[in-house]
Design a binder for these strands. Structure first.
Lengths: 201, 201
DNA sequence: GGCGCTTCTTAACCCACATCAAGGCGCAAA
DNA sequence: TTTGCGCCTTGATGTGGGTTAAGAAGCGCC
């Protein structure tokens, strides 16, 4: 049931992150064997705030995001598209309840790595532990960069950078979701866009 | 030259994070042997933006922070006090130039774990690799929480939470540094404080 | 083709916070 | 004691973005 091509993409990421270590064939086989493919309609959820974390996900196709719900408002934390890993880091790493909800912004295909299989791989093989370390290092750097941008850039600059850095996301998700990522209202984003496309009078 | 008590505190953190694994005596001895103690005056820097990352640091005494310099303005990313690890995560993990500057907000004592020793420990022993994974997981969760707070809370709420969560930091660093952490000007923080202490007319 | 739903835009008004500009206070050096 | 400096506060004024309220435009569905 698991598409060959998707697993190959995940495997390439896996080997990039654990290099120069290589996993034992047994540990590798157990890991691959635990993968489950999931197809998501637009709007479907992978996790919800408060529920226990089940898995680490690898995006084969589509765009997802995680977000926080604050008195009815959705605050988007990050976007994930093809080739990226997604999870509620807190829930996945501590076993506690998820702090974030993850949903599909387009129809998606993901590979799920159940939490038990991931922890088992960490225990079974140093190479998987390295994969876990390197993967979360990239998450941490990305998150710190995001924090820095929120602190030091204006809404307009954040929008420019987002367009430049994530063009594949920018053109596939609705403006109001981008607004919630930038930390402004959809109205404000609309104004920014008008200003930008009509700078000369 | 390395104080016994400080190393004991670091070692406790180390064992907490690598549990239930334990390092080989040889790898553990090599790691401990590589530690170097550094004393910092208030205002002294551990790293500067653009320089190569040298080490991971463990705070024995004092308060430090990392910050970004944007046209003359310092934007504080995070505070670190006794018992915490500090580093420029990007520089330390990739070997590239630091993205952040780290300085001492009070006189400090830290233990430096040279980058080469850290990477060597990762290679030498699965238990150290686990320590690295767990430590950076905590960093990632903290950074995501910080991002979420910037997105969803007002300046006043961020100040309240900071006071509640980091009282030991709040009372030891100047207001203008706290303001740069909250993402407001010192003037705005001053007004927030006045409002807070004088809610009844 | 008409209907309803979602998304995006526009406009008017308001407010939190930035900016600019003075002071005030504590402390250390002279 | 005086001077100077770093830090905090206060006030006046400006503005980016929030809020509210309407439309307009795209699009699937009957």
């Amino acid at each position: 049931m698991v598409a060959r091509m998707s697993v190959a993409a995940l495997d390439a990421e896996l080997r990039r992150l654990m290099a120069p270590l290589t996993p034992s064939p047994a540990a590798h086989a157990a890991f691959i064997g635990a993968l489950r493919e999931r197809k998501l309609d637009k709007g479907a959820h992978l996790t919800r705030e408060g529920e226990p974390a089940e898995a680490l996900f690898f995006v084969c196709a589509g765009v997802l995001r995680y977000y926080y719900l604050v008195d009815g408002e959705e605050h988007t934390g990050q976007f994930f598209d093809e080739g990226m890993f997604v999870a509620d880091v807190f829930g996945l790493t501590t076993g506690g309840a998820n702090l974030q909800s993850i949903d599909a912004l387009t129809p998606c295909t993901v590979l799920a790595i159940p939490r038990a299989a991931l922890l088992g791989a960490y225990d079974a093989d140093h190479a998987f532990e390295r994969f876990g370390r390197r993967a979360i290092e990239e998450v941490a750097v990305g998150s710190q960069r995001r924090t820095a941008n929120l602190l030091k850039l204006s809404a307009e600059e954040r929008y420019e950078r987002f367009n430049a850095n994530r063009p594949g996301v920018a053109c596939r998700v609705p403006q109001y979701v981008i607004a919630s990522y930038l930390g402004v209202t959809p109205e404000a984003l609309s104004r920014i866009r008008k200003r930008r496309t009509t700078p000369p009078t």
